[in-house]
């Protein structure tokens, strides 16, 4: 996967360390001599610091990683990517301005649920087409939204349905030409949302209609990219009951979607302590002075219990996903601080 694929999409539940694993995969590919880029969906400040960058930005920045290949990093700056897209694709500066000033556009480009996914696809296509990178590793939003991501192309297509745009774009004066049902629906929506809102939505759709061709072109390209044999999906999970449940569901959905699951990475696994129980028991028996002694003994019991629980979670994942290579990354002592920490994770992914 690290040597051959051109796009690696990391998906998984929230809080499992997807961003770190994505960056480690890119680093591992760069160590193999490839020009690799990791693309995150948020500012990932800890990652930026670990890479020696002041911050991750909307453009790709090269990291001084000392690898044979090249490591670059960037993030999806939603607002910037949307604005750039609109400016690039609009037939005239006036149309671009109309869209950029529209309150619906402004909300869509910053906080509207799902807009991250749309713009991620757009950015992904742009980067994949640029030819600057041999492989792009994409960090995605947590799994509740990972499917919004995969479905984004279809959803944009649906939003851009000609009839719908036509009806919403014509504005009130031309409703007469709409069907009786459509008129009825529009009147109800107007009463619920207020006249001004409907006018804003209408303006938005008029302008969007002019961009529809370009957007549809992109969504076709994105759909092809996500199903390309050179695209691999990596499921990032953690050793927790709810995370394993969620990961199994996610893997099933990925398969149903025709995506190929290349590997599962279980991050932050507690390894079994490398000390015989009898040795530990003897050491604790020799200590006096409760409660300090019992506090220490409890930490040993914690370590044993955590390792046993993690092993059972790993076994459940293995059983649920037969045939998918599983990599366990042991828990580190601290959060991500440096390239060395990232290299430690990368070492477990080969």
């Amino acid at each position: 996967m690290l040597e051959r694929h051109r796009l690696i999409v990391c998906v998984g539940a929230g809080g499992v360390g997807k961003t770190t694993v994505s960056a480690a995969l890119a680093l591992a590919a760069a160590e193999r001599g490839r020009r690799a880029m990791v693309l995150t969906i948020d500012p990932a400040r800890a990652l930026a610091r670990a890479l020696g960058l002041a911050e991750l930005t909307g453009s790709s920045q090269r990291v001084a990683a000392g690898t044979r290949g090249v490591l670059a990093a960037g993030m999806l700056d939603q607002k910037r990517a949307w604005d750039a897209f609109v400016t690039r694709q609009a037939p005239s500066p006036a149309v671009a301005r109309t869209l950029l000033d529209n309150p619906f556009y402004q909300r869509l480009s910053t906080s509207f649920a799902g807009s991250t996914e749309y713009v991620a696809i757009e950015e992904l296509c742009r980067l994949a087409d640029s030819g600057e990178h041999d492989v792009i590793v994409l960090d995605t939003p947590p799994s509740a939204h990972a499917f919004d991501f995969l479905r984004a192309p279809e959803r944009i297509d649906r939003l851009l349905d000609r009839d719908v745009i036509g009806a919403l774009a014509v504005g009130r004066g031309a409703w007469r030409t709409a069907s009786a049902t459509a008129r009825f629906v529009l009147r109800r929506l107007e009463r619920a949302a207020g006249t001004r809102t409907l006018r804003d939505i209408s303006t938005f759709f008029v302008a969007l209609d002019l961009l529809a061709g370009a957007v549809l072109e992109r969504t076709r390209r994105a759909r092809a990219l996500l199903r390309d044999p050179e695209t691999a999906f990596v499921l990032v999970a953690g050793p927790r009951q709810l995370v394993v449940d969620e990961s199994v569901v996610l893997a099933q959905r990925l398969r149903a979607h025709g995506a190929s699951l290349a590997a599962v990475v279980v991050n932050r696994v507690h390894p079994a302590p490398d000390v015989a129980h009898a040795v530990a028991a003897a050491a604790f028996d020799a200590l006096d002075g409760a409660p300090a002694a019992s506090w220490l003994r409890a930490r040993w019991d914690d370590a044993v219990a955590e390792a046993a629980a993690d092993a059972s979670h790993l076994a459940r994942l293995r059983a649920a996903l037969p045939g998918v290579p599983l990599h366990a990354v042991p828990e580190a002592d601290h959060d991500l601080h440096s390239l060395t920490d990232l290299a430690r994770v990368a070492a477990f992914l080969s």
């Binding site: 619906f104 906080s111 939003l159 349905d161 009839d163 919403l168 929506l189 809102t197 759709f205």
Partner: peptide
């Protein structure tokens, strides 16, 4: 109606 789907999809934060 498809108009409704489009409206719910486009209206900010309605859901």
């Amino acid at each position: 109606h498809p108009l409704y789907t489009a409206f719910v999809g486009a209206a900010p934060g309605l859901r």
